[in-house]
Amino acid sequence: MSRSLMLGAALAALLTIPAAAAEVELDAGESGQTEFVTPSGNIGCIVTPEGGTEVYQPESGGPEIICDRVEPDYVRVVLADDEAEELDEVADPSCCGAEQVLHYGEWASIEGFVCYSRRTGLTCTTEDETHGFKMARAGIETW
């Protein structure tokens, strides 16, 4: 990809992040995965790096982000580099015990995904924004 196209894609990604948003760094745990929750505790996410971990290998090979919303119904969204998929029936509900919080007005770039937290919900996209999701109590949107 040419340098100008990469610069244009990076600029476009930055323009979608709210102007008042602050970038934060989220740390990976001992497993190699990065976990975080939103301030409400209603949404929790796990990011698995490319190649997976000793205990979990994403179907796509990774990287992969899985976010669960607890209320009003338990729903999971899985975002890999080629699609975002909403799962309404989750066999292993286990949301929202992470210690790291992505506070409202903050955003983080993790393993090729960009997530930002607002009072209106959590939005995560691939860095090129071709795929992503918005998750909130009001609903879920994938693209």
Results as ranks from 00 to 15, higher is better:
residue 126 T to D: 00
residue 8 G to T: 13
residue 23 E to I: 01
residue 99 E to K: 05
residue 120 T to M: 04
residue 60 S to E: 02
residue 75 V to P: 04
residue 100 Q to E: 15
residue 68 D to K: 14
residue 32 G to K: 01
residue 37 V to I: 15
residue 27 D to V: 06
residue 4 S to E: 09
residue 23 E to D: 12
residue 47 V to W: 10
residue 24 V to C: 10
residue 109 S to H: 14
residue 90 V to P: 13
residue 93 P to T: 02
residue 67 C to I: 07
residue 24 V to A: 09
residue 84 A to E: 03
residue 96 C to F: 01
residue 93 P to E: 08
residue 14 L to G: 12
residue 76 R to H: 12
residue 126 T to W: 00
residue 86 E to V: 15
residue 123 T to A: 14
residue 26 L to I: 12
residue 87 L to M: 12
residue 52 G to L: 06
residue 57 Q to C: 04
residue 124 C to V: 07
residue 4 S to P: 01
residue 33 Q to T: 02
residue 143 W to K: 15
residue 104 Y to D: 15
residue 96 C to D: 05
residue 102 L to D: 05
residue 120 T to E: 02
residue 121 G to T: 03
residue 72 P to C: 03
residue 83 E to F: 01
residue 19 A to K: 14
residue 31 S to E: 14
residue 112 G to T: 00
residue 46 I to C: 03
residue 128 D to F: 06
residue 46 I to R: 06
residue 87 L to P: 06
residue 75 V to I: 06
residue 51 G to R: 11
residue 111 E to W: 05
residue 106 E to R: 03
residue 98 A to I: 05
residue 28 A to G: 03
residue 86 E to K: 15
residue 133 F to S: 02
residue 76 R to T: 12
residue 21 A to K: 00
residue 40 S to H: 06
residue 44 G to L: 08
residue 76 R to K: 15
residue 36 F to C: 11
residue 79 L to Y: 01
residue 32 G to N: 04
residue 66 I to F: 02
residue 33 Q to M: 14
residue 73 D to N: 11
residue 47 V to Q: 12
residue 100 Q to L: 13
residue 57 Q to Y: 02
residue 50 E to Y: 14
residue 42 N to L: 01
residue 26 L to F: 10
residue 77 V to A: 03
